[in-house]
Amino acid sequence: MPTLVKLLAQRIALGLLLLFLVSILIFAGTNILPGDVAQSILGQSATPEALANLRKELGLNDPVVTRYFSWLGGALHGDLGTALTSRLDIATEIGRRLGNTLFLAFWAAVIAVPLAIFLGLLAVRYRDRWPDKVISAFTLASISVPEFLIGYLLMFFIGVKLRWFPSTAISYRPDADLFTRLESIALPVAVLTFVVLAHMMRMTRAAILNVMQSAYIETAELKGLRMFTIIWRHAFPNSIAPIVNVVMLNLAYLVVGVVVIEVVFVYPGMGQYLVDHVSKRDVPVVQACGLIFAAVYIGMNLIADVVSILANPRLRHPK
């Protein structure tokens, strides 16, 4: 299967190249921001000598290219530098918080992905009839309402009025037992599910409906199979590529786009960490977060590409 290996190698190499380019963009972007790191650390009242000393200490006087490569080199070795404001090692700090973010994203995905695909299949099965319309209306509504509003609504009704689940995730401790942890993230997971469900479900519906036009679906119908069997066994395997693409895009969003939800629910994840340090102008932290978010995005899309390639029987089983 030389074509297959070649295609996969090409995709992976492209992904790495893209990540490299993004790292340049992040570094350049943070460097052309107005203001000066030394100034922002020491404040307006700093003496010129103190500023000069700090700049030298931080290596800010080196040329940009030198600084970029020493930053990149560090990042490749897992050294993301130290936060300017707290003087803590960024890698350890991010490691903790990334774990929390992934925990949240994971459970949201575990619920949202199968649910979205199931609803998509259901919508195809009852196409243009009431289940399809209810699913469409509901998912459309949930994607149209801003996520923070859904968050506050759930907080108010479920957290405060009904008291089923804690209304914020502030009590979240990574070392608590699984049940306690799940309980404390129940509401943010619910909001995230609402947010990503519609996109995935609608794409699943569209992809399968597209395949339902094929002649082999008619063959299956003329075998006397049940509609759901036809959709599940004959249509779904041929619509995997577009579905995986949209699923991966949404998984990446669950990691990268949760900033608002984490802030709303005071959840100690990457998003909150990023927001905190953006407001403090802590450039190294912003760079590190940017790089990790980019890596997640590119990685997820890479997986989607690889799965799409593997899903093609012509490539998997060459003549």
Binding site: A215, E218, L222, P313
Partner: peptide, 25 residues
């Protein structure tokens, strides 16, 4: 009842087998 008939008592051969076979199976 039609579902019981199709693929059991009556079957169908189409013009384009290439399109009528599911490529993924």
């Amino acid at each position: 009842a039609l579902r019981k008939l199709r693929g059991s008592e009556v079957t169908y051969v189409s013009q384009s087998a290439a399109a009528s076979f599911n490529p993924a199976k």
